[in-house]
């Protein structure tokens, strides 16, 4: 593997981690928003607070990791994508800002009125952010970012692949969150809440699956290069994702929540890495390949040092944090 492909792989690993870990955090906004009135939704909102509170900032850093690796390793394509996709990126950024700030504010609100305001802001922006990031992914995958960054500011992300990408991102995040939240609820002994989440996660899963199915035709037409990749080299990953998705639904159906988390994460990881493998060797589809877009070799090597350092310095404490949050002591409210 050449050094630039290794860095691109590290980049896609970051995207996968953000999609799985950050995605589950964003998805909890869907359940928060639909939890009902102050009284009826209190239990679920408290669970959301407790589940994502310790981890959302760490999970959010994956996005920073992706941005930094991208602009350092492939600077010209970064500038091109940022310039063409300025609108969805700014809207996603707005969502990121509002989500993080209002989540922290809600936790320490003094009154129910304040908590409602911050809560709605948190939940709504948690849904909008993955939508816009999904449109960005769709734009990149369907080759709408020209190398010089002069792509159309609107049609680059208002097209079939982008819009389906946005909707699928929202649905996937919500499905992940539903599975994780149901497992958290069951572990902390809130059986009724777990049951409620189970039904809603099943519904979200079925709807998202249907959207993916409906999107296949339009995306095939709209993004031929990606389609070739998805039906060719990346086909095993696509199949894996579908199988894992169905397995998740079955485990949810049979109330094995803790187990359901694994295939849920695998399904998302497989589809995101399938995207990466599917558009290989393109960085900007039909425009710039990984090799063409790569920056200075010395920088790529240095980045691999940084990635190696991340494996040693970041992953162990991250695993420790995730293990703590899944432990018995931390599940008590």
């Amino acid at each position: 593997m050449s050094v630039e492909v290794a860095v691109a792989a590290a980049l896609i690993v970051g995207v996968v981690a953000y999609a799985v870990l950050g995605g589950a955090d964003f998805g909890s906004g869907f359940f928060d928003l639909t939890a009902g009135s102050g009284r009826r939704g209190a239990e679920l909102r408290t669970l959301v607070d407790h589940s994502i509170g310790p981890v959302w900032e760490a999970n959010h850093v994956w996005l920073i990791y992706v941005l930094v690796i991208w602009w350092t390793a492939f600077p010209e394509t970064f500038a091109a994508a940022m310039t063409t996709l300025v609108l969805p990126l700014l809207l996603a950024l707005l969502g990121i800002v509002l989500r993080g700030a209002s989540f922290a504010f809600r936790k320490y609100s003094a009154t129910l009125g304040q908590a409602r305001l911050f809560g709605v802001t948190f939940a709504a922006s948690s849904i909008l952010t993955p939508f816009f990031l999904g449109t960005v992914a769709g734009a990149l995958a369907s080759g709408r970012v020209p190398a010089d960054g002069t792509g159309d500011r609107w049609s680059s992300w208002l097209n079939p692949t982008s819009l389906f990408g946005g909707v699928i991102a929202v649905g996937t995040c919500a499905f992940l969150a539903g599975v994780f939240l149901a497992a958290d609820a069951a572990r902390s002994g809130q059986g009724r809440l777990a049951e409620d989440l189970r039904l809603r996660a099943l519904a979200v899963g079925v709807v998202t699956g249907a959207v993916v199915f409906a999107a296949l035709g339009p995306i095939m037409d709209d993004a031929p290069t990606l389609s070739d990749g998805l039906t060719g080299r990346a086909a095993p990953l696509v199949v894996l994702s579908a199988v894992a998705g169905v397995a998740t639904l079955w485990l949810l159906w049979t109330r094995r929540y803790a187990w359901a988390r694994l295939p849920a994460a695998v399904a998302v990881a497989a589809v995101v890495s399938g995207w990466g493998v599917g558009q290989y060797p393109w960085l900007l589809v039909d425009e710039v390949t990984i090799a063409e877009g790569a920056g200075a070799p010395a920088t790529l090597q240095a980045l691999l040092v940084a990635v190696g350092l991340a494996v040693v310095v970041v992953l162990p404490p991250l695993a420790y944090l995730l293990r703590l949050t899944q432990s018995e002591e931390w599940s008590r409210h």
Partner: peptide, 28 residues
């Protein structure tokens, strides 16, 4: 960023790592 991203980017990568560490231990 297009011209100098690969010159100035490396410290940002390490900054990202320290942000990671800080966010993880903050949560804990």
């Amino acid at each position: 960023m297009g011209t100098y991203g690969d010159v100035l980017g490396l410290p940002f990568a390490f900054e990202g790592l320290s942000f990671f560490v800080e966010a993880i231990f903050l949560g804990i």
